[in-house]
């Protein structure tokens, strides 16, 4: 009797663990199947077509893809230097009484739902952008900035963790040769934790590109590629959030599913690069 239960328990844990792989494969398959209409109708053109006109049954993903890339790029441009600054502050500068409270509050801020960041962006940040740049205040620039602020706590926390893997004894050896803090950061911590720091930043990028709620409020969902960063625009998650419940034809739905598939493939690729290429092995002293 005991043996039967033992075998059953072992077997069920294995089946459940395997089902994780199954679910992931299922997600890809289902998204692909539902994209078939759109893939058959537009083929490769879907990726390069700039027109997104549901009333004409014409769907092109380029504005959404470009929007995702540009808003994420803007967010990284703003967030990376600040996140590295915060990480250096937390690992090397902050007084030990400050380290824990500041570190914990940054981690807690990373836990605040992104929809809250989006709301803040809409009510408090859009008016500022409107005053400075004119126009509506919603668009690529606003979305990039709000996304940067939303991703900052996560990015700073993981970058700090990567920097903290540098053994104290290694840092002390540099100080013992008369190094300044900046010498130690530049010559010891960054080279030692390079893979971890880059991996953390790319992981944050992978999260940012799939982030929906922080940008949906402030992007405008206009399928148009504009050189004006303060003009309303769209991105893949923004399009999905705004149009999924409004889609009324099979082809419209299918195009949205293809957008989901594209987003999943992009973020899967980015996260895999971060995980497998940079965060794989931990160096040890």
């Amino acid at each position: 009797m005991g043996i039967v239960i033992d075998k059953l328990f072992a077997f069920s844990t294995k089946i459940i663990a395997l089902s994780i792989l199954l679910i992931v494969a299922w997600i890809f398959t289902v998204l692909f199947q539902h994209s078939l209409d759109s893939i058959n109708a537009f083929g490769f053109d879907f990726l390069v077509e700039t027109k997104w006109a549901p009333n004409l049954e014409k769907f092109g993903a380029l504005p959404a893809i470009t929007g995702s890339v540009i808003s994420t790029f803007l967010a990284m441009l703003l967030a990376v230097p600040i996140a590295i600054g915060v990480a250096i502050f937390l690992s090397e500068i902050a007084h030990h009484r400050l380290k824990a409270p500041v570190g914990v509050s940054i981690e807690l801020l990373a836990a605040i739902p992104s929809v809250v960041y989006g709301m803040w962006g809409l009510f408090y940040f859009v008016p500022i952008v409107r005053d400075i740049f004119g126009g509506l205040g919603i668009g690529m620039l606003t979305a990039g900035i709000v996304l940067a602020i939303m991703i900052l706590p996560f990015m700073a926390a993981v970058t700090r963790d990567a920097m903290n893997t540098t053994p104290d004894i290694l840092k002390e050896s540099a100080y013992a040769l008369g190094a300044t803090k900046w010498d130690v950061v530049k010559n010891i911590i960054i080279p030692y934790a390079k893979a971890g720091i880059i991996g953390s930043l790319i992981l944050a990028l992978g999260r940012a590109i799939g982030e929906t709620m922080a940008v949906t409020f402030v992007m405008g969902n206009v399928h148009k590629i504009s050189t004006d960063l303060s003009a309303p625009a769209t991105s893949i998650p923004v399009t999905l959030a705004n149009e999924f419940t409004e889609a009324d034809t099979d082809l419209y739905f299918s195009s949205l599913f293809e957008l989901s598939l594209i987003l999943l493939v992009i973020s899967f690729t980015i996260i895999s690069i971060a995980k497998f290429y940079f965060l794989r092995r931990k160096r040890r002293l």
Partner: peptide
């Protein structure tokens, strides 16, 4: 301290080769 430490060097419990 920067000058002091160049005059008084230190060797640690474990080898501490820098990543270079």
């Amino acid at each position: 301290l920067i000058t002091l430490r160049t005059k008084i060097g230190m060797i640690f419990q474990k080898p501490t080769a820098f990543p270079m």
